[in-house]
């Protein structure tokens, strides 16, 4: 018979560690709840019509909004997607369909390296590549910085999703005389569509909240700007600027902006998770 004390102690140890893991998990989940709750609590009150339609007011005047920053974010993200999505998908197609060689290995590795580069460094580089030659900050420069950040995510998910398409599907197409490029565009890509859209949206959500790469590129702007060639406001930049000032009114605006941003990002990720993920898995099986 096993020693009673020892087996009691072992049972207690088991309970202890189960309890420990459970309570640490509770802490992590409550951190999320705390953050979201404060965003709603502090932000919801100021998230009104004027927030969505007006530009910032000078210190001392109440009201005003972040309409120009919203537009700026949309423009910057549009430019980023314009460059980042095609290049990312193209690189992903190359990796999946032609990348079983040294060059493919190298591109895969480089793409993972790029994915790990701190966003502030991307900002520095975009400054050197775009702002310096043009001699001014611009929405375009911000777009380039964010595009660089989107590419590795889009490329690797595209590759992964294309590789999930069974080889038999490609062979069937080749077998009836469809050339490879046509097979990729008309058969393989559509089959993997839901997964690729998922990757693109996740990359989009990830860069939508980026601030550091925009500081030396888009720069920020207190007024309306509709030009890709001018400094422009962006939601995350505006939140940062307001958060580090000592004015209560601007703090309220920062909270409202943060709530707005989180709704956009969490909305996108949740949508992706519940709509596309399911369809993607269904398609892959």
């Amino acid at each position: 018979m096993p020693n009673r004390n020892i087996s009691l102690r072992r049972q207690m140890t088991d309970y202890f560690f189960t309890g420990l893991a459970a309570s640490l998990s509770v802490i992590v989940v409550s951190a999320l709840i705390a953050i979201l709750a404060y965003l709603v609590l502090r932000g919801a009150g100021s998230l009104n019509l004027s927030f969505l339609t007006q530009t910032p007011k000078p210190v001392g005047e109440t009201g005003g909004g972040m309409a120009n920053a919203l537009l700026g974010s949309v423009m910057i993200l549009g430019i980023a997607s314009l460059f980042g999505v095609p290049v990312g998908i193209g690189a992903g197609i190359y990796l999946a369909e032609y990348g079983r060689n040294r060059l493919g290995q190298l591109v895969r590795f480089t793409s993972d390296v790029l994915n790990g580069v701190p966003s502030i460094v991307i900002g520095l580089v975009a400054y050197g590549l775009v702002v310096l030659p043009q001699r001014h900050f611009s929405a375009f420069a911000g777009g380039v910085a964010l595009a660089i950040m989107m590419i590795p995510t889009v490329a690797r998910t595209t590759e992964e999703m294309l590789l999930l398409v069974p080889h038999a599907v490609r062979e069937a197409a080749f077998g009836i005389g469809i050339p490879q490029w046509r097979t990729t565009i008309s058969i393989t890509l559509p089959t993997a569509r839901a997964g690729i859209i998922t990757g693109v949206m996740l990359a989009f959500a990830r860069v939508a909240g980026e601030t550091a790469p925009l500081m030396f590129t888009a720069f920020g702007n207190q007024f309306w700007s509709f030009s890709a060639n001018q400094p422009i406001a962006a939601l995350p930049l505006q939140i940062f600027t307001y958060a580090i000032t000592p004015y209560d009114d601007w703090h309220r605006q920062a909270w409202a902006g943060a709530l707005m941003l989180v709704i956009l990002i969490v909305g996108t990720t949740t949508l992706v998770r519940f709509v596309f993920m399911r369809r993607m898995l269904g398609g892959a099986r």
Partner: peptide, 11 residues
């Protein structure tokens, strides 16, 4: 935990 990863740094 995934949502925690989605929240931007500035927030």
């Amino acid at each position: 935990t995934e949502l925690l990863a989605a929240i931007p740094s500035v927030i």
